[in-house]
Design a binder for these strands. Structure first.
Lengths: 345, 345
DNA sequence: CTGAAAGCGCTTACAG
DNA sequence: CTGAAAGCGCTTACAG
């Protein structure tokens, strides 16, 4: 690799001048610029970001640690953050915690060592000593999507509660009072929040959410499949079911389509709704009611909040509204013409 | 941020000793180790990777530039590379080119400046001057999934041709001779390869692939939707259709489900198959025939190839076999009981 | 406008 | 086993 020294040597100038040309310093004569660029070209010179970072303050790099990159919601979030970062001249490094706290810590640690200017984290778990410490040490930190206890950093997340309330109102208005939920992983704050929001929305109608109406999922597809399969096996399906994220909804739909033996029909026997609006929910038959999260806004806002922090401004926690899309899977019941066997007809 | 100097000062030792403790140098006395670690703890000291990288050779960082991170195939590929990298103690930086050559170059450039030890690239376009130059300059480079002209670097990709041949044999054996394809973006080598493989497989049966049987897609979902909608509008659907990737297949399925007016029935009027096997293809009705690519193996192999290159070994191009999953969407036709209106019944 | 020099945070022969 | 010193590739006041 050619260095600034090599370029200076062939151009017959000082390293300071080469540096000035490449940092777009104002006072550089046209002839100097030309000489330097020619020499640089000859060497295929590319400034070494490591050397530069050591002198300058800031690396123009941010870190993003997500809990599960294979989940399209987080892929889209990552994409939104990346777009905002690139536009602002920042490089984004993503780490995938894969819902494992140790792996999250590994990435947080690595990113800190690599001197990122700041980090956006979707915590896999509500308590992380390392995150708490990073925030304490005044490292710029923004939490995204999920809260974390005792971590002094602003949270940018969507506001699912009002949409859940709307959904419950609709379900109750269409005659469903036995309502259940497939919850997300216990460790994630969002899982808890969503169940709480459902419980509060039901309470308004004088309906309880008993423990046996809460199925414990993990936010992964397989857990949606497993929970729904269990319900079908035990014939304990509620009249309406909220599924806490899109991945688990796909698993539940798979169970409803492939389960051996009689299956309740959607929406007559069981109404379905989920949080996260996947493209296919609009064209699957029956189409699936979903609460759409403002993914792009969340990602963009998180980056902007981080940038504000980096620039020394105060940043406050922000909740962004969701949108409820009512579709066929929660339509009012119609008189049974026959016991249908498949949900997806 | 505390530096090695601060730690040395409070521990009352030299910076060299602190460095030795943190680099796990062999000759450090237990007392020294203890003193240093205590002081480091006190300062919440974390070695600065920038300073370290400047002296050591290698940053233990690799770059991955993918053409479209929102496409689950690439997300999974990225995940596989990341897993392999993490296990080997490397940090992976991903850049999403979003199918834009300039954006790809931006990331390649940035990664080179950041002194990555090597890069894995899924080229958005078959010719890239910057990639060619990077390979020339002896930067460690591995191509993944898609070929690139004149770039001196090994390609790790799946071998779709045999599976496409198998598929065509099955289609012809079940009486389909009018076979078409929704191709991927012209710029991508894989798009061309897949059409070529289809053409060769058809030729064996004395069947041609006329230009009007090739619909030009972009590998994006919307293009699958657009191509299929066009066919339906113009009533020019072939007897069997190969869709070049999973995203476009979802778009095509959407069109088949939502298109106003009569729609050909699957598989009777039109047989469908695609490259990429999405989870839901097994449970959608009808289930969708697909060629599964060995995503994890591809990603892992690409990382190992890169590591070999970094360690000075020669690496050769590798093709990994695909698996054809025949499902209902290409089942033999049965006598029409009536003209069905929807494909997804 | 340009150059000589100090220094960012680390590592690593070289002495002792 | 430990320390003093040079140096990795850059930037940036400071002179001129």
């Amino acid at each position: 690799m050619a260095t600034i020294k090599d370029v200076a040597h062939t151009a017959g100038v000082s390293v300071a001048s080469v540096s000035r040309v490449f940092s777009n310093h104002e006072s550089v004569s046209p002839q100097m610029r030309e000489k330097v660029l020619a020499a640089a070209e000859e060497h295929s010179f590319r400034p070494n970001a490591m050397g530069r970072a050591l002198r300058r303050t800031g690396t123009r790099t941010i870190g993003l640690v997500v809990s599960d990159l294979l989940n399209p919601f987080f892929t889209q979030l990552a994409r939104a953050v990346e777009d905002a970062a690139r536009e602002a001249g920042y490089l984004m490094i993503v780490g995938n915690a894969d819902e494992k706290p140790e792996q999250q810590d590994l990435y947080v640690q690595t990113l800190l060592e690599r001197q990122v200017d700041g980090m956006i984290v979707v915590p896999t778990i509500e308590t992380s000593e390392l995150l708490r410490e990073a925030a304490e040490l005044n490292r710029h930190l923004v939490l995204l999507d999920r809260p974390a206890n005792d971590v002094h950093a602003p949270l940018i997340a969507s506001d699912t509660a009002p949409a859940i309330t709307q959904l419950v109102d609709h379900l109750v208005a269409t005659g469903r009072r036995d309502i259940g939920v497939i919850a997300g992983s216990r460790a994630a704050g969002t899982a808890r929040e969503r169940v709480d929001a459902l419980r509060s929305a039901l309470a308004v109608h004088g309906i309880e959410l008993p423990p046996e109406r809460i199925w414990a999922g993990t936010f992964r597809r397989e857990s949606g499949l497993a929970c729904m399969t269990r319900m079908l096996d035990e014939r304990t399906t509620p009249e309406a079911l909220l599924i806490s994220n899109g991945e688990m909804a796909l698993g539940a739909l798979e169970a409803l389509t492939t389960h051996a033996g009689g299956v309740p029909s959607v929406p007559n026997d069981i109404a379905l709704a989920c949080i996260d609006d996947l493209d296919m929910f609009a064209w699957l038959r029956p189409s699936v009611t979903a609460i759409a999260q403002p993914t792009r806004e969340l990602g963009r806002h998180a980056f902007e909040a981080l940038l504000d922090r980096i620039n020394g401004h105060e940043v406050s926690a922000t909740r962004i509204a969701c949108t409820l899309h009512l579709r066929a899977s929660t339509a009012p019941r119609v008189a049974h013409h026959a016991s249908e066997r498949h949900a997806h007809e």
